[in-house]
Amino acid sequence: MHIVYPAVISALLFAVGVYGVLARRNAILVLMAVELMLNAVNLNLVAFDVWWRDRLHGGQVLTLFTIVIAAAEVGLGLAIILLVYRNRKVVDVDALRTLREDAVPGEGDPAAEAAEAVEAGL
């Protein structure tokens, strides 16, 4: 077999997953895209495992473990999404902006304040 075909497909699938993570608004759709990315990696692992005829079957075993972890992750991710939904009634990713960096309130423009002080002092 030619290894290039599954490898390319896996790469393209990964890119699709990247697009989905960065472009979708609903958090559950983002989770779906993350699953796509994980699956792309799994395909890659299996293809290379078969190609190298690994006696330890490392690729396929790792694929199994990846599936396990992905499942755990989806479970926890959904629990978090449900919590967010409970608190804010929306699960839009771009509505969660508390990490935003704002200008310090009340500081105003210190340059203007300094200029005023100089004027008053003269």
Binding site: V8, F14, Y19, L22, L29
Partner: peptide, 24 residues
């Protein structure tokens, strides 16, 4: 369902795809 980020996301995704496919 699509956020405002989608064009940047498209760029990044295309770049990723190009990079990975070329390498492979």
């Amino acid at each position: 369902l699509d956020s405002e980020n989608r064009w940047v996301a498209l760029v990044v995704a295309v770049a990723t795809a190009a990079l990975l496919v070329t390498t492979v």
